[in-house]
Structure formats: C-alpha cells, structure tokens
Amino acid sequence: MAKQSNEKVLEVTHLNKKYGETEVLPDFNLEVQRGEVVVLLGPSGCGKSTFLRCLNGLEEIQAGEIKLNGQVISADATKWHIVRQKIGMVFQSYDLFPHMTILENILLGPIKAQGRDRLEVLQQAEKLLDRVGLMDKKEAYPSQLSGGQKQRIAIIRALCMNPEIMLFDEVTASLDPEMVREVLDVMLELAQAGMTMVIVTHEMGFAKAAADRVIFIDQGQIVEEAAPDLFFTSPKSERAKKFLNIFKFNEQVS
C-alpha cells in the first residue's frame, strides 16, 4: 500500500440516516487518512451503500457531520455540485451516458462542471485510456462495450475530475468473473498510486490485497475494524465470523 500521511481526508462524526421511520445508520463514525484504502464489508442492507451515498450528498442525512479536508460539507447550504467534484463515485450500474461517445462521457464533467480547457482534459483522458488499454474505444458508444470495459471507463470518468477521494459502490457486483479481474486490477493500481479510496465490495481476495483497513458493518453499525490480515484470519466478533463463513466452503473460521 502507498505511504499514508496523517492528513485526514474524510471525517464522519455521528452520522444519522433514516428512511422514514427506519434508522439505517444510527450513529456512524469514520476517519480516512490520505492514501488510505478502506474496505467496507457487511451483509446486504447493512447500510454500506447508503453510507457512500450520504458522503456524496445523494442522500440527505438527518444528523451528524461530514468533513472533507477539514471543511464541513454536510451543512444545509452546501453547494453539492462543487463538493462532488472532489469526491469521485463509481456505481454498480456504471451508468455511462448512452447518447454520448466514450470520450464525450469522460470529458463532460471536467469541461462543463469544472470549466477546464478541452485540450488539457483530452490529454489526461487519453493518458488514462491508454493505461487501461481502451484507447481504441474512445469514439465508440457505451452499448458497444462489455460490462468490464464500461466499468473501467466509469472509473476513468470519475478520475478525470481529479478527486481527493474515490468511492466505489460494489462496482464488480454485476460483472462476469473474467471482467471482474480487469476492473479490480485498475482499482489495485489506483490504490498503489496513492489514491484515497472507500470501497464497498464482496470481493474478499481483492479486499485482502488492496485494503489498509477493513470495516465490518452490520445493521448500520461498525461491528469490527481491523487490518485485513487480522480480520480475515482471526475475526473477533461472532457476526464477522458468521459473515466470513458465507464465503468459505471447506475451512471454518475458528
């Protein structure tokens, strides 16, 4: 993992999120250092995706504070479209814009939202496309790409905004196994290059390889938090053990 500084990129304190009467996240707290890769694990419905969406302002929070680089972004007056330029998010359903070419998809944010010079963004986009080997697809339309290719483009699209932190919401969940690997490789490379990432995933092997910290969530609460080696070999809580056993067929976690 890349060297981490002590700079806090993300600070979440006492975050409370309700859907109507149901409390999905009663009291969530999290700190992420620059360059750190945090993986959120947990059963479905435990609130991990909701949490990511709260960080991005796609969901409203009822109480609590979110700070990005020391600045509070959870206030009512927050101009989310400016904050979101610093937070890159990649979704499970990739959601490229089908009526635009791949290149147009990537350039839309930087040019329209950030007002950057087209030539400069083009250079950055082409460099990234080249690195993932998708340069020949830049004039294609999303419908002509495979799921894995689309997801890698979605990652590039988020990266071109030059975010401070990247959020990944189960990005490989709807991909075929062969394509899962090519996307995870891109994410691993990003992690090694020092990007601050918060990842929700079910890919345990990837979590072991990429994470600096694994956080196990159940019913909206952090049950266990540890380094990946420790968490996967000897989890402390019963719920974590039960969860990890879902993924193992022969061995039982003691």
């Binding site: 989310w80 479209h81 839309l108 944010g109």
Partner: peptide
C-alpha cells in the same frame, strides 16, 4: 432510470446541467 441523474450529479454537474446534457 434514476442512476443516470445520480451519475450526472456524481461528476459535479448542477441540476440544470444534468437536465441539459
């Protein structure tokens, strides 16, 4: 699909820009 709007917001577009583009 709502995801298209979410995707647009996620790359920093304002509501007007999401509608327009």
């Amino acid at each position: 699909p709502k995801h298209q709007t979410d995707s647009g917001f996620a790359i920093g577009l304002t509501k007007l820009q999401v509608y327009r583009y």
